[in-house]
Structures are given as C-alpha cells and as structure tokens.
Amino acid sequence: MASRLSGGGGLVTYLLAAAVLVFVLAPLAVVVAVSFSTAPLAIFPPVGFTTSWYEEVLANDEFQSAFIVSVTLAVCSTITSFVLGMPAAYALNRWNVPGSRAIEAMLLSPFIMPILITGLALLQFMAMLKLRDAALGLFIGHVLVTLPYLVRTVTASLKQVDRSLEEAALTLGAPPWKVFTKVTVPQIVPGIAAGCLFCFMVSFDEFPLSFWLSNAETMPLPIFLQNSMTKVFDPSIAAISSLMILTAAAAVIGLEKLVGLRRAMSV
C-alpha cells in the first residue's frame, strides 16, 4: 500500500487519479462555495461570505422534515438490509441451498434493473394492494435497492474467509452459531461495515424510486431538493446540497473510525 508506482505507467496512473479527483471533487467544491455566497442567485464564483442560507435552510420546516425522512429511511433500510442480507449471504455461501445461484442472481438483480421502472412498477403494485402509505412504499423500495449492496459485499468477504478457521473452531468444540459469531463475523466485519455504508449512502441519495413513491407529507431530501430547485435557484439549494455532502462525509468518517476505511474497502 505504501509503495509508490513508478515509470511511465505510474505517471499515467497518477494523472488519471488526479483527473478523476478533479472531476468528482471540483463540482462539489463549487456547490459548497456557492452555498456561502451573498448573491441572491446560485452563481459561480460566489460573492462575499454568509452563513445565512444555512440558517434559512435549517430553520425551514420542510427541510427539517425531509432530512428526518431521509435519515430515518437510510437507517431503516440499512438495518433491514443487514438483517435480511446477512443470513441470506451466509446461507448461500455456506449451506447447500438448492438453486442458490438463482436465488443469488435474484437478490442482486436490482443492480441491473432500471430503478425508475422498478419504482413505477412498485407504485402500481402498492396501489393494487391498496397500500397508500408513502412511508411504507419508500421503505420497501429502498430496501429493494440497498439489499444487493449488502449481500454483495458480505458474500465477497465470506468467500475470502479461510474455511479451515471455521473447521478448527468446530473441532475445538464451538457449536456452529458460535463459530459464526466468534470466528466468521470477526473476519468479515470490514465487509459488513462497507456494505452498511453503501446501503446508507445509496438510500440517502436515492432519487428515481423516491420520485414515484414519495408524497408531500413523506418526502426524502433528494426529492425536496429537486422540488425547491424548480421554484427558485438561490444559494439555499447549494446549502441543502452541502448538508447532504456533510452527512455522507460523516457516515464515511464514522466508518473509518469504527473499522478503518481501507480494511472496509478491501473486499
């Protein structure tokens, strides 16, 4: 990890990495910069410096409720994905489940399905079942898209666990559930953490599903942001965006503190 790339290939790699960083980070930096602008419109370069947009946004009832909806939704879908995904990934990898490949493919299929269409289908399905609760719809929809991330990362890390560790634990007298908690889980903690982070981020940032499934009472942050933008394009939009970036960064830093990001991302 600490070693440096050298030669022509190394230079290309570094330039490419720098270019990617610039293209990803620069627009974010622009957004953050604009959020402190005193100009009445979201224009770049920003003029002056003020935190009034943040004060305005944070005091806004609609923003507050959207933020709470989004965080609640992200936390709930992450927990649910964990609760459903962990046993699923474990069973598919360690037990002889008939048709395990088909089941795994089905669990991962939301990865490749057009989410916008999935959302519409889900909306119609819910309407058919006379389930008109937007919160429930959003929750089900978000779990649908976050679950594959957890299954994928946990599966990948389970595959890397040396089976003889589990066998050694069995011979030492550990019943299967203790083998799982005392030996398997400690080996895959980074994978689990990475999976949960992905779930949180994907849900927090989710737009196409929420677009169909939310309503005026239950509106996640991305939809709220989009709605506000169509009304007025002042730096409060940038402030909302910056707050979203901040939340994401907090999640990443939290993970780093918890298990170390490098370990978590090494799956």
């Binding site: 003889s164 560790l165 066998e167 050694a168 069995l170 011979t171 030492l172 007298g173 019943p175």
Partner: peptide, 14 residues
C-alpha cells in the same frame, strides 16, 4: 464435530 472432543492440526495452521 463440536461434540467429538478432537484436537486437529491443519496444514495451514488455521
């Protein structure tokens, strides 16, 4: 396995 009271050594130490 876990009720057999067996000590086992593996090639990769485990």
């Amino acid at each position: 396995v876990h009720r057999r009271n067996i000590g086992m050594l593996f090639q990769n130490y485990a």
